[in-house]
């Protein structure tokens, strides 16, 4: 038996029929083909599946698809502008070597976005706390923290990641 849900996915109204036992991760990867969100442990330990629901970082592997009805979901695919311009956080990860194998990167970047939306001037302590639930097996934590810090310093640049969405509203 299915259930219809409506939600905003990366800025787009999305309507889809889901199964009650599907996780948000299953819906994104297996049904919608958005493969940017990764599955690591499947039990909320590694953070590779981190996406934002109503602006809050959650583990998509422990979030039921049935619960996204009426909500807003942002995945790594929604970070870049429609013309393909990378978001400042993504550019920072490229520039500062925050990406090694890349498996943790989508989750890291979304955890960082949730933090910076709330605290654009976040210090190193706050950054570490925000990514404590994101594991990097390459152990490139120093570069990852540096990547995020480099964006915080440009606080005046308006870190609001969905810049392209704001443009549409004006």
């Amino acid at each position: 038996m299915g259930r219809d849900v409506s939600f905003v996915l990366n800025g787009l109204e999305t309507h889809i029929r889901i199964e009650d036992h599907w996780t948000l991760l299953h819906l994104l990867r297996e049904e919608l083909g958005l493969l940017g969100t990764k599955e690591g442990c499947g039990s909320g330990e590694c953070g590779a599946c981190t996406v934002l629901v109503d602006g809050m970082a959650v583990n998509a592997c422990l979030y039921l698809a049935a619960e996204i009805d009426g909500r807003t979901v942002l995945t790594i695919e929604g970070m870049e502008a429609p013309d393909g311009t990378l978001h400042p956080l993504q550019r920072a990860f490229v520039k500062h070597g925050g990406i090694q194998c890349g498996f943790c990167s989508p989750g890291m970047i979304l955890s960082a976005k949730a933090l910076l939306d709330e605290r654009p001037d976040a210090d190193e302590e706050a950054i570490k706390a925000a990514i404590a639930g994101n594991i990097c097996r390459c152990t490139g934590y120093v570069q990852i923290i540096e990547s995020i810090r480099s964006v915080t310093r440009k606080a005046e640049e308006k870190v609001k990641v969905m810049a392209w969405q704001a443009d549409e509203e004006t």
Binding site: G11, L12, T14, H21, W22, T23, H26, E30, L32, G33
Partner: peptide
């Protein structure tokens, strides 16, 4: 608006069935 195609439901060739979640009614 561009990018819409990214969100169209699709069937992946040989989609890997999620092995770990058991069926239930919510």
């Amino acid at each position: 608006m561009s990018g819409g195609s990214r969100c169209t439901p699709m069937t992946l060739p040989q989609a890997i069935e999620e092995v770990d979640m058991r069926r239930f009614t919510y």
